[in-house]
Design a protein around this nucleic acid. Structure first.
Lengths: 102, 102
DNA sequence: TGAAAGTATCAGCACATGCTGACATCAGTC
DNA sequence: GACTGATGTCAGCATGTGCTGATACTTTCA
């Protein structure tokens, strides 16, 4: 049985800036200020994208005084990777299965 | 070293209809007519999405008379899966690496 | 050769989505 | 308690992107 690919999850990663954020967070846990420095984007803009990532379960927050740390949730990424790998496997075994022309 | 995630590839899969197409093609090779039946989408619309998938290297075409068969390229999907798995691994090992507050 | 079917391309429209500035909120510091 | 800095929320605007109808191209078949 083919587990379907999580559409919301993949859509959350499809934005260039969000992908950039995720790549940065894969190296170390950062707070919004750091991300503003690293990406050069406006704080408001980042906050919006971080909200999307949070709601998709890609990142989790940890308040630290008046700062908010953002940490990647490896399981979410790994789950998507697994779904895609499964999809690729399914495609490999179905390569020569061809429905006849109508 | 962390290989970056292919943004174009992930964007190609981020659309609901395109994800649907990819899921269908993972089971068997189909031509446009089949996809019209399966998805209920207009032929024009499907053709546009198939073009995006083709340009992203997700699918390949095989002309068969006046039909055009679409086949998934498992390597493209597997490559993305690998990139994401690597990203997840990187995030796991960097979970407690935290940049100090500014 | 003409008709029919499958497919691709194009222009126009509509909606979604990202970006921004203004403002609100909260924690720490004086 | 007032101030400052970090962060989130909201409304408005602009751009992108998907959907559609019209149309052209190609192949097959009569």
């Amino acid at each position: 049985m083919l587990t379907s690919v999580d559409a919301d999850l993949i859509r959350a990663l499809a934005d260039p800036l969000r992908l950039r954020i995720v790549t940065l967070l894969a190296k170390e846990t950062l707070c919004t200020t750091h991300l503003v420095e690293e990406t050069g984007a406006k704080q408001t803009n980042l906050s919006n994208h971080l909200k999307v990532l949070r709601e998709a379960g890609v990142v989790e927050t940890e308040p630290c005084g008046r700062f908010t740390y953002y940490r990647l949730r490896p399981d979410a990424i790994a789950r998507l990777a697994g779904q895609l790998a499964e999809l690729a496997d399914s495609a490999r075994s179905a390569a020569d299965r061809k429905r006849t022309c109508p």
